[in-house]
Write a protein that binds this DNA or RNA. Structure first.
Lengths: 129, 129, 129, 129
DNA sequence: GTGGTCTAGACCACG
DNA sequence: GTGGTCTAGACCACG
């Protein structure tokens, strides 16, 4: 379910939150679905339980998951909507990157080609067509 | 010349390097131009001189500026070329963001519109049309 | 692992980067190997942690080591290749020294003998034959 | 007589000492020859007189020049011999560089070729044949 | 005045 | 425990 790179620069807890959010958005997990317990996931990923705990707390505070004491964690019903709203903020990030690319002399076409590539292909992350 | 947000999670020294690189790419500063001395900038931004020093060292090692002990720092002649090469990497960042937006159900058109907006307008950073 | 001369004019942090690079090239340390933590090395060498940090940051930005916050630092897989490329620049330094030696009346033979000595013998650094 | 690069990483005073030593070794200046006064050289090179003073003090303490108050500075009679002795130390620097190059997998032949190039050609510094 | 190095010590995020 | 950032303040070489 998760793939962790312990040597990555992005913190492990962040890799987890990011991947779970991706799973929610892609429909791989649905509202109401249970997610692994802190303990089981920490064993599976061979990470410190505190790290998993931090990831789950983060997701909880964002409204993505809900942890029910004694019962476990599950995806909240409005998880997708929340993430959709967040997604729009990423458009601003793209605009900001475009501004820098424009200054660097990169053409509009080159960027649009990159955007279209993502939407035309069912690329797995990082895969070359 | 610089605007620092001491409460941001991006380190102060990184805010400085980023902003100076933007100034170079936008043509606001040109090769050969002097940049503020470590001490004067530290006074102006109310940060520790070491923090400025770290930013300048970073820029020096990247080939953007040249620090001449006893004289000051200035923009290197090939600064723009170096940054242009780096800029291409930002396209990958855009692709990654697009992948997430695609999952979130954002349409290709919406993103392309945002890209075109940047290239069509002479937007000042952060300005709304 | 390291020998520091605090009275040398070459900065402590540079003595460290240089020695670690030598250890990589000599095969004394290998890709994936961990290197001492910032704190432990600072205690061992009786220097300030910031000085070690600076050395490690430098090595990180050169691609020799990778610093993983919360985990430690280790030798990167491509460390040797990077250093091999850098090594070629040292040939220019030798040419420059030769020019001065030529002016000083030192014969070509004498220098070539010195070069051959290094390659023929398994000299430990600084050992006289 | 001197060519100074004010933006170079090597201090101006060191550029001066180095160049004067080269002039002595190449025979361009001879024992007993006068060298420019501090004031005239500082005007000519557009540098701070203190910088010239520092260079001359350095050369004086090494026994290369002698300054006679009220009369000026001149090359000492034993200047060449002193520099010849110093030159031998440069062979050690070459050996040290060779050790690193050996570790980096650079061949003996490649280095010897570089050495021979210097001795076979009357290359001006930095000139390609 | 300029940049560069270093120490001492604090605080942070991460695991 | 780990590395990373930052401040305060000292001292250095260079010009």
């Amino acid at each position: 379910m998760f793939r962790i790179d312990p040597l990555s620069r992005t913190p492990i807890y962040e890799q987890i939150t990011e991947q779970l959010e991706d799973l929610v958005m892609s429909g791989a997990v649905s509202p109401g679905d249970p997610i692994p317990s802190v303990r089981s996931l920490s064993l599976q990923l061979k990470t410190n339980p505190n790290t998993i705990q931090k990831a789950y707390s983060e997701l909880d505070s964002r409204g993505i998951i809900s942890s029910v004491p004694g019962k476990g964690c599950y995806i909240r019903s409005d998880a997708r909507q929340i993430l959709s709203v967040c997604a729009r903020k990423k458009i601003d990030e793209i605009s900001e990157l475009c501004r820098k690319l424009k200054l660097a002399g990169i053409s509009e076409e080159e960027i649009i080609t990159a955007v279209k590539d993502v939407f035309n292909n069912n690329d797995v992350k990082g895969e070359k067509k």
